[in-house]
Write a protein that binds this DNA or RNA. Structure first.
Lengths: 212, 212
DNA sequence: GACAACATACCAACCGGTCTGTATAAATAA
DNA sequence: TTATTTATACAGACCGGTTGGTATGTTGTC
């Protein structure tokens, strides 16, 4: 990464294309994003595009991987990791996901969730890159969940892995509702339900519900 | 609806196009489904297509509405409505959703969820038709949820409407995970979590968790 | 004969992808 | 140090196929 052998101006194209791809695909979807428009957005020519990517699908794979890297760093830097209680870290993650539901839809929506819906039947390579992105993101929650299960003595029919994946399902579904309704409010409400579910899983009420 | 003024063979085209559209869009997405291929699948010509739909987007709107009708009838005929307890009807709905996670992905996946992800930024008409489909489907759960809340004396921060929408978020997200992983297993696991959440909401454990 | 329900031929725009050319810089040879 | 080669990183014209959409004709029904 350090000391690129070429001046930045001549090495930028690939990065600019990936950055533009994240934005454009999140706005319009994959199939509706043409290579020409992608190049125009990135400020490069078609020659640059096909120099760096052998096909549009190859760009799709690279975009999904780039998304993984970018979001990986973004969440790694989030504040909830500093919490001591593993359950609080998990809930902190959920709160963080809710907190970033801001701005325009393409700004908080998930690239790979959009992407995989479109291409799961036509491009196995992109599909796998998307699956890897989602699954590996979920996997980062597993240690905290497992630790919380041990700490709170939760004996469950469900696994830490399945709960981690469930959080992603809720988030992905929340994005769809947000796109349908045109706002983030429904998504936030669903994230609230997710938080409540996690609280209920780990902290069953200690006293019996009293009769009215 | 009764007594079509023309023999079926000459009135079929619209229906055949809509039926083909549901299948094709669920397989490949909206943008990647061309009018030509749609016509080929439906066994009609392009002339028939543009006789019944003024544009591809108009077909998109009609497909979303058709989806609403088809699924509306499908769920109206489902067995869980016969249950007496409103909570059991709600859980019966969830169980039913899990039970139909069978066969190939395009067979149990949601048309409007796929559709709205692609076009929310480019076609307000289709987006609205999709939103209507999802929201009105969710709305059918509201009476049962409200009834269950009253019956089980649930005093909640959440509303029946928000829980109904949350079920749809979980389902939509489960479909995305299914498409990413290539199988329905993850989706079923998420539906299990949804069921557990609803149980916890309505039936908090009456005895405190005993030590060890 | 009026009108709906198609069928067929056709079109300009756009699509992903290729081709050839060129500027730049590192590697090599003198 | 300088000349030459080689490789990279583009630029931009071009191409055949596909796209959504149209224009015109035909057929069956009231």
């Amino acid at each position: 990464m350090a000391n690129p052998p070429y001046p930045a101006a001549r090495r930028d194209a690939r990065q600019k294309l990936l950055t533009a791809a994240l934005a454009l695909i999140r706005e319009r979807g994959y199939a509706a994003s043409s290579v020409d428009e992608l190049c125009a957005r990135a400020g490069v020519t078609k020659g640059a595009f096909f120099h760096h990517f052998k096909s549009k699908d190859a760009l799709g794979v690279a975009a999904a991987q780039h998304w993984s890297e970018v979001t990986g760093e973004f969440f790694a830097a989030a504040p909830y990791h500093a919490l001591q209680d593993p359950l609080q870290r998990l809930l902190g993650y959920v709160d963080f996901r809710k907190a970033i539901l801001r701005g325009e839809l393409p700004e908080f929506t998930c690239l790979v969730g959009t992407l995989v819906q479109e291409i799961y039947g036509t491009s196995p390579e992109i599909r796998e890159a998307c699956a890897d992105s989602i699954v590996s993101h979920a996997a980062r929650l597993v240690p905290d969940i497992a630790e919380a299960m041990a700490l709170y003595r939760v004996q469950a029919e469900w696994t830490a892995e399945s709960l981690a994946l469930h959080t992603q399902a809720v988030l992905q579904g929340a994005f769809i509702l947000a796109k349908a309704t045109g706002g983030a409010a429904v998504a936030a409400a669903s994230v609230d339900h997710l938080r409540r579910y996690i609280e209920l899983l780990f902290a069953p009420p200690p006293v019996p519900a009293k009769e009215n």
